[in-house]
């Protein structure tokens, strides 16, 4: 990125745009694996953007060159931190995607169950808990068990 002076090279700027655009497009998908790829691309785009923000030049070490041609070391320090953070978050998301696939057989992000129930109620123009009389819960066909299952069906050969 030694574009001969202070400004960033056009290539870097285009790379930032491209990475961010593809990243955002992938983020809009439902499959966690694609979202993961999107996060990686978007994260790298943002990291490059930070790098673009600083002045380019020779290594910022006293004695290595004239001081007014040195690059700005601060964005480089920040981008290192940001890379580590992005990496950690990506790893966690990968773990979540794997766990989701392990438990449910796919890694699609599911809809909110409660939300759909309330939408269904609204469609029938009913009120949640209109009944204050004290009927048992067994009469309600909509009744679901809010307790999540302890664990999903185990796959053969899967280890926890």
């Amino acid at each position: 990125m030694r574009g001969g002076g202070a400004g960033p090279t056009l290539v870097l700027v285009i790379a930032v745009g491209l990475l961010t655009a593809t990243g955002v497009t992938l983020l809009l998908e439902r499959s966690l694996t694609r979202i993961l790829l999107g996060v990686i691309l978007f994260g790298n785009g943002v990291n490059l953007l930070i790098l673009v923000g600083g002045r380019s030049g020779v290594a910022p070490v006293v004695g290595a060159g004239p001081e007014d041609e040195m690059s700005d070391p601060l964005p480089q320090a920040m981008v290192l931190t940001a890379i580590v953070i992005t990496f950690g978050l990506t790893a966690f998301l990968a773990a979540v995607a794997y766990r989701s696939w392990y438990l449910g057989g796919n890694d699609e992000v599911q809809d909110d169950v409660e939300d759909q129930q309330i939408v269904a109620l609204a469609a029938r123009n009913e009120v949640a808990n209109a009944d204050l009389g004290g009927e048992g819960p067994g009469d309600d066909p909509e009744q679901v068990d809010p307790e999540p299952p302890q664990r999903g069906p185990r796959r053969p050969g899967g280890t926890r």
Partner: peptide, 20 residues
């Protein structure tokens, strides 16, 4: 668990996006 992974994945993705 399955429910926590389902809701957690939404939370994780949205949080990462806001961090970016």
């Amino acid at each position: 668990t399955e429910a926590r992974i389902r809701t957690g994945s939404t939370y994780v993705v949205v949080s990462i996006l806001s961090s970016m």
